[in-house]
Design a protein around this nucleic acid. Structure first.
Lengths: 328, 328
DNA sequence: TTCACTTTTGCATACGTATTCATAAAAGGG
DNA sequence: CCCTTTTATGAATACGTATGCAAAAGTGAA
């Protein structure tokens, strides 16, 4: 028998109407100082909290942001999750966390987001079929692809400038005397991996330097196995460019196991600058993604679209930073 | 102008009443096969989805579980997060993710959970003041402390059997010829750290072996610094028991930096068995928490309490497993 | 004080669904 | 086939809030 107290109860105690109570809690509504105080006092006494569901029902808006994430196991993403949650909290929004196991978001997950009529959606490292994505547009729910771009689509995305990063890394390696390289990609259909490779390969081509590509899966184990395979073949490149840090750590451990000296025999560069990359056991040279800026950009866009929906689609690319450590 | 279609629209198209539409989507309600088919067909055609907020408003129930987490940066917790989210999804529940920055959950976070009238709450690695916790009881919202116990309180908690684990670790070390030990604790007011120490110290006392306690903070950097401090003093113990893996990895790196041989000069044991502990760079001996079982236990409790609230308070402790690697 | 004008308040209604109650339809039993 | 019992349906209402509208209360100048 939960005696849920509502605005009416507060109104009665405060000696005002339910409307006035409502207005006290509705940002932007006008109430006189006197009634506000009466209402707040009564509310305090009764322990009143406005029912979010009733509010949402009538305003057709929620204070919920859907956050879709796949690779929570990759230490890059807990940072992202933390920052998003904190930032949204500051703006009065809560986070509905959706974990997807497959690269492409399942229909049931989409349904969840739509059922809860989320105010906005952030998709960090997954894709979705175009027609499903369109259903968000139909419902005028702003959507941001974070650290991913959906090819041939018309959605807002916020990424690190992967192309430039790939280029810069290539240039750095070339300046250090690169002869030939290996690029270890993540899941091959992710825009991040593709763009990093593209920038990298462009510059290499300009300098007539060849590289070999190996496809892995963004995991430590994947990096480890791939590096073992490569070193097993005997001919090491002068450098590995690995699509993310967690794979790069696997590469480093595999090389260490084969007693291959880094960076003397082969250089290794990762991407993301996760916390482990700075650990003494690794000291990985990498590219730091400007997470704070990326999150801020994402949040700002969502908030402005929530305030007034325009459906603006753009690819925002923020510069990262080269972090030189001891693997190059 | 989002034309949200409702049960009435579907009813009209299907040639039935709104009640019948409602019944089709309400589990356990009785509808004839014929109307169900008509309704589903109409719903499909219109793209109807029941409005969760209207539902919740009237049933006073939600399909949302509040998940409160603090140390998402500790690789132990992303696993926990993943498993909880997946498990709840299977049971038709969504996860409202609440990140708290301080050890004790802030009032605003509690308010969020109460405002959304969550069906249940999991608190993974934070505490809350007793009177706040009571507000969940008042509202009959089931609550589980996961991997934490709230002292002097009356709540359901699910943990690894930390006491036994601490004992087993002590016994193992003693069998290996332990002379003296160091225990590196996490935040000192966490039940996990205290219980691990208690089990550890009990057995050590029985064998008249002394140990020193250093208080750290459950982070890599904390473990690193603490180990540096200790080794800087010159007198190494024969073993470190570290309250969690991520600190233990910091300890290993610090020892390595000082060129102290592990396990020859000093043994190191962690707790959690996070994925990094099995990496070749560390090969950390540790204690594995039975995460799946713990999650399952938590989910089952919550579901049963959601079905029928009893307020049952119990401390469930599940056995973990010693994982011997190369640091002992 | 009076009047014109602004601000605040209360009333009534709507949001989209679940649910009670009465009624209609179907099923079962002889 | 009729009567009884079960099952399925529809009409009406309630959940707790926001909001348009009209009435009331302030405000300030003359």
């Amino acid at each position: 028998m939960k005696s849920t107290i509502n605005a009416k109860d507060v109104a009665k105690l405060a000696g005002v109407s339910q409307s006035s109570v409502s207005r006290v809690y509705f940002e932007g509504a006008k109430v006189s100082k006197k009634t506000r105080e009466k209402v707040l006092a009564a509310a305090e006494e009764l322990g009143y909290r406005p029912n979010e569901f009733a509010r949402s029902l009538i305003t057709n808006r929620t204070k919920i942001i859907g956050l879709v994430m796949k690779g929570v196991q990759n230490p890059f993403y807990p940072q992202v999750l933390t920052q998003f949650t904190n930032s949204f909290k500051q703006h009065g929004y809560s986070v509905l966390f959706v974990h997807t196991n497959s690269d492409e978001i399942q229909t049931e997950d989409i349904e969840t987001l739509l059922n809860y009529n989320v105010a906005g959606v952030v998709i960090t490292d997954a894709t979705m079929s175009l027609n499903v994505a369109e259903s968000f547009k139909e419902n005028q729910i702003p959507l941001v692809f974070f650290n991913r771009k959906l090819s041939r689509s018309n959605f807002y995305s916020v990424c690190c400038n992967n192309l430039n990063a790939g280029r810069a890394i290539a240039q750095y390696l070339i300046a250090e005397g690169l002869k030939n390289a290996v690029y270890i990609s993540g899941n091959e259909n992710t825009s991040t991996s593709l763009e990093r490779e593209q920038g990298f390969s462009e510059v290499l081509e300009e300098h007539k330097i060849s590289y070999t590509k190996y496809v892995s899966d963004y995991t430590y184990e994947g990096g480890y196995k791939t590096a073992l395979t490569i070193s097993g073949k005997g001919n090491l490149p002068s450098a590995f460019f690995v699509a993310n840090d967690i794979m790069a750590l696997g590469v480093l451990d595999a090389l260490r196991k084969q007693e291959i000296q880094v960076p003397e025999q082969v250089k290794v560069i990762g991407f993301d600058n996760i916390s482990m990359s700075s650990w003494p056991a690794y000291e990985l040279t990498t590219w730091e993604q400007p997470i704070e800026k990326m999150v801020e950009e994402t949040v700002n866009y969502l908030l402005s679209e929530i305030a007034e929906y325009t459906g603006l689609a753009e690819s925002v690319e923020l510069d990262g930073e080269f972090v030189k450590r001891k693997t190059t």
